[in-house]
Structures are given as C-alpha cells and as structure tokens.
Design a binder for these strands. Structure first.
Lengths: 368, 368
DNA sequence: TGCCTTTACGTCAACGTTGACGTACTAACA
DNA sequence: TGTTAGTACGTCAACGTTGACGTAAAGGCA
C-alpha cells in the first residue's frame, strides 16, 4: 500500500510521486538561505517576498538581491499550509475526454473564466469510467483543490456528500448530480432531441431512426426521451427497431447506418445522439452515395460542420457559454456565495445547414 | 503587491487564492483529530493511513473507523512538505490553446502517458502570449510542479535556465528551446512544408501561394523555409507576393484567398500553414466555386478532413505519438534519466484526400 | 529460564512558510 | 523637552504531515 492511501484512493496507484529516481535533485534555496545571505530574519524575508510593509528600502534591496543570487522561488505549498483559510489555487476539471471537441471547448472556456480568478485547471479525462472518476476526485481532495467541475462518469454521487459538506464547491456540467444537491450547468437534452426530431417530422419524415450512446448515460436517456416525445406528439408510432443504443464509436455508427440502408424499409432520416455518431453516419451515407437522400440531424456542433457536403444540420450546445457559466458559478462559490444550488439548463439551438432539410423520397420533387 | 510575488510573478495577479469569501468553510479533520478519537498517537495514525507496518490489527481498525467517522482526508501538501525529495505529482502542460484540435489531442495523449506514472496534468493555454507563459511557469514553479511541457509562446528561454539547473524536467513540444538545452519533441516542419510544396509541383503547379502564421513563430519560419526550398529545388522563382505572413484567423485566411482569386494572375495551388488557415482557405474556395479548381495542401490534419468535398490533402503530424513521446521523455527524467537532452524530430506524412491532387488549369483535361 | 531480537507503539523535531506578538528606535505633537 | 504613536525589525509557534529515534513488551532460541 502506498502513502496517504486512506482517504485518498488515488494513492493506491504505483506512482512517481514517491521519493526516488537516480541522483537526488538539488534542493532549492529557501527563505532561510535568503535570510542568512541578506543578514536578516526569515520573517523579514517573508515581508519582502510578500510585498508587506515593514521592511526598509535598504533591507528590501539586500533581500531581493540575495533572492536573485540564490534563485529563490516561493513555495506555495508551505505558504498554503500555514495560512489560515488559504486556498490551493487549483480547480479540478473532470471531463469526458479532453481530446474531443466538446470537452476541449469546455476546458478552454473554463480555463478562461477561472484565470480571471487566478485559478489553475487540473484537467482529466474520465472516459466514462466511474472508478477513474473516484480516484481522481480522491486525488484532488488530497490536494485540497478549491473546487471541482465534474462531467460525471458515475450515475450516483453520494460519495461526494462528505466533500460537499466539507465546503468543497462542486459544479456538475453536462449531467446532473444524483444523490447530492449541488450546482449544475446542463443542456436541455430532451428539448434538443425533440427539436431535432420535430424538425425532421416537419420536413415530412415519418421513419426516423435515432442512434444513441450507452443507455446508462444520462444525456443519452434524455435525448431518447426527446426523440420519443416528438414522435408521440406527431402521432407517429415508435418503432423500437429504429432506436439503436450503445453506439460508442464512428465505426459502430457507420456499421449501424449501413445496416439501416441495406434494410427493406430503411429510415428516411437519422438523429445522431452525439458527434462521433454523426461523423460515422455521414461516412456511411457517403459510402452509399446517399448523402442527399437521407436526412441527418446531429447532436452537438463541431468545427467544419458547414464545410461538409451537405452542411450538417445540428442541435448546437453553446460550449463557450456552458464553460463560462460553470466558471462564474464556481468563482461565486469561492467568493462566498452560500445560496441554494443552481441548476442552469441551457437551451440548445437548431442550426440548419442542409443535411437536416433533405426531404423524404415521396416528397422530393426531383427524386434524387 | 500580493503574497509570494518575489520569485513568483504569477502572484502579481489579484486572485481568490488569498484568504477570503464569506463565512469560513468548515475545517477538515486532521490526523490529530483521528488520533484523539482512536486513542493513539498521530504517528500511529500516519502509519495506518500510509499502510506502513507497525500497527496491530485492532489499533488499525480503530483508526480506520475514526477516519471514516471524521471524514478524514489525507493532506498531500503537508505530506509533500515533510517528505524528503518528495514530488508534487503535478506536471504543467503549457499549450497553444487547449480548445484547438492540435493542443487538445496533444493534451489527451500527454494525460494518458502521465497517468501511467500517477501524475496529474495542470493545463494552460498560452495564446502565443509570452507574458502569460512566464506567469504560468512562475506559478507552476511555486507549486513545485514535477515537470513542465512547454509549447512556448516566447522566442527566448534563458529565463528557464535557473529552473533547469534546479533540476526541473522541461520538455518542449512543437517548438525547440532557445538559449536553453533541454528535451524537445518537434516535427520536421521544413520537411513537411517542402513535401507539401513538392507534391503540388509534382502535380504540375508553378504558381503556389503559401499562407503562414505570425512571422516570429518558429514553426511558421520553418514551414516557410520548406516551401521556399521546394520551389528552389524545382527552379521555380520565389514570388514574394505569393507568400503571406501573419494570417491569424479563418476570416483573415478567407480574405487573403479571396483576394488571390480576384487577382490577375492567381495562384493555382495553396499551401496553408496551419489548420485555421486551411479552413479559411476552404471557405474562400467554396464561396468562389473553386474547390475543384485550386489545389490546396494544409498543415496538420483534423477530424472530418476526409468528409469535406474534396477531401483535404494535408501534412499530418501524429499528435498521439508526439504526446506519447513527450510523456515518455518526461517520465524518464523523473525516474532519474540524466542523459543529454533529447531532440526528437518526428516526420510528418502527406495524406492525399483530393484537394492537393487537383491539377492546374493548363493540365486539367476537362477544364473544370 | 535467560537472553536477544523484533514488533508495536510513542516522542520529538523537521519540512518552508506565515500570523501573532514583542521590542527598540524614531518621529511627531503638545 | 517629554510623551505618545508608529515603524522596522525579530522571536516564537503554528500549519499537517512524516522521518528518525527511543522504549517496552513479547516471542523465539539456546
């Protein structure tokens, strides 16, 4: 077992954070060294380093020169340990995958917002793995992170109750907390998927398929609910064969759509539950030469969606705004806001670029 | 002036890391509290928390129950301060923009590599701002980051000499260090741009324009050098009007290309120096109905480049490999590798998707 | 049965910094 | 000129944890 593992499950990992590796690295100078060289007390050095009053100009100059001579660098960890009610200056951002466009855009917006408050972002990808989420949360708590932004991979969040009670600001993003009442910024997924489906229905489509993410992912459930609600409102019977769960990669999406196209009564329109499904669907349609014959509405926007032929009609979440709102809420908590938890639900918008406006074959005047 | 500002220029920023904000948050329990409740010494609690031998089963159980009862959480900062030659477990990744696909992909690959070593990544976007780079480096040094991955915004790096001497592992990525000899992982930009240009020349093009980033950005210089070298090898005169510096946005790229298309002797092929220039160029070509008349090779790949009509021919950097190599080098340094600095130069590859294979008008058999 | 070794505790001080408090000297005011 | 207040220092202990060292008791071996 590794050090600090109780109350910090992340420490169970064999790490380089233990002492080790070749020759010891040279020790950095401390205020003691600076004090000795400048001929003053450590407290006086601290005053100068911190820009506090109580040091004469001459003494200050001597200390600055000594600090420069010794390459002295302030130790935030020691300072934070001693100061009463001090903060670490770190916020943890636990996102789905910092490499994908949604998480990357969110991280960027969050970083911008938090930089205003002098906070740094410790970024992590959860890859929908609940155990990794818990490990990283544990590590961040051990580091006394000032707050956490969490796009949870887990479905229940009681394990965070003690951290929340201990005063750790938590803001959920894209998914809501369960078993815990704290701040969240999400999208109205149901409304978004309903909008996508209604848009296709308004265009004349009646056989509309939906390809969705893992069933247990909350946003996936909500999007499916919206899809079904739109069908119901239009009095179009729900065909379970047109709803595909658990599509987790472009390749899988491509396969599913290709299978649809090969079927005897294929859908004339598709709703893709997330970006990689959209991309996979587009590939399948292109391969089959059907990009202008089958309508497609994707969930979430991404760069270049307008340059694809036809342009991709999407339900767009404003990632910049989501990140900015999360940052604002978190900074508010850190500044002392003790109000009831906020649940901001942003509305996505329909962006028409062509792929969602393709008419079904029976309505298409030129039958192309 | 703010605390710890000497030797830590980042601290000049007004921050929330100072004490403050409303009601004090509840103090967390410490080992002292656990020891009191369990009826043992602090040292014995430390033994159990750290999984060290020297605690009986009965005592261990009492301590674990007390820790759970008190919601005790290990304090990594205090532990790190006390342990000799301990590490913070943090690596700073200073990238161009964590929201763009190149930086995002790199961050992800880096995160994956460093997670193997139990390290967390503190991510920051520099936006090509040298002052921000220095501030963030300063902050990370104050936090005693174990290492830094730096895609520098600055041109000179003497300011890092003292950190390097102090034993802080530094790995430059995408750009090399100047005035400092440390590890780096870069791409052979010159070779890549030369490859792009030679490819167009081999396709019959003679009037090839290049749109490039800010002149002082090192990768931009190298790409320009490669472009010029290919022209020279083909004995094609260099036309300064065909080389455009300082293209910083899609909109700007769109404008430049539109201007080219309006000129009396427009280029028949384009080399785009980076992704956003590529995207801007594609928009301009589409608007002018010229996507199949002007050849285009972009620098660096991105998602969906194959779905654009025509598919984008690009010089592709293997972002995953870059990130993995950076991580490997950094972990090696942390594990004690004291060898001479490594300068890994990866070769980009030409990905043909159509846009770079468009022939010039005089060679195009159907003249479209 | 006696002696030696090992184990399970605990004490003390240290890490690098800062808050609280004290002292001496200087400056300002009456 | 004397008194009071303010400034420029310094001392001491604290933050939460861990390394070094010590002690007592128990177990094993001769």
């Amino acid at each position: 077992m590794v050090k600090g593992s109780i109350g910090n499950t992340a420490a169970m990992t064999t790490t380089l954070t233990q002492s080790g590796g070749g020759k010891d690295r040279p020790a950095r100078s401390t205020m003691k060294d600076v004090a000795r060289l400048a001929g003053v007390s450590v407290k006086t050095v601290s005053r100068v380093v911190n820009g506090e009053p109580g040091a004469s100009a001459a003494v200050r100059e001597r200390i600055l020169q000594a600090a420069e001579r010794l390459d002295y660098r302030h130790n935030l960890g020691a300072s934070t340990l001693r100061r009463k009610d001090s903060r670490s200056g770190i916020v943890g951002a636990l996102l789905q995958d910092v490499g994908n466009s949604f998480s990357a855009g969110l991280l960027r917006a969050l970083e911008d917002a938090l930089r205003e408050g002098g906070l740094s972002v410790l970024a992590a990808s959860l890859d929908e793995e609940p155990d990794r989420e818990r490990d990283i949360v544990s590590d961040l708590v051990a580091r006394r992170a000032d707050g956490l932004v969490l796009m949870p991979a887990s479905e229940r969040h009681e394990y965070l109750l003690s951290e929340h009670r201990a005063g750790l600001p938590l803001v959920f993003v894209d998914r809501r907390p369960h078993g815990l009442d704290c701040d969240s910024v999400t999208i109205d997924n149901r409304m978004g998927a309903k909008l996508a489906t209604a848009h296709l229905i308004a265009g004349g489509h009646r056989r509309i398929a939906m390809l969705s993410d893992l069933h247990q992912i909350e946003t996936a459930k909500e999007r499916i609910a919206g899809y079904r609600a739109a069908l119901e409102e239009a009095q179009i019977g729900f065909d379970p064969l047109l709803l595909v769960h658990g599509v987790r990669s472009e390749e899988e999406a491509t396969r599913v759509v290709a299978d649809f196209l090969d079927s005897t009564d294929p859908p004339t329109a598709l709703v893709a539950g997330r970006n990689i499904i959209t991309v996979g669907a587009v590939r399948a349609l292109r391969s089959a030469g059907m990009v202008r014959k089958v309508a497609l509405v994707g969930f979430d926007d991404f760069p270049l969606a307008d340059l694809i032929e036809p342009g991709l009609t999407v339900i767009r979440q404003d990632v910049r705004r989501i990140g900015a709102e999360v940052g604002r809420i978190l900074l508010g908590r850190l500044a002392g806001d003790n109000g009831p938890p906020q649940h901001l639900v942003l509305k996505p918008s329909l962006i028409r670029r062509g792929s969602g406006e393709i008419l079904p074959p029976n309505l298409d005047p030129v039958g192309r």
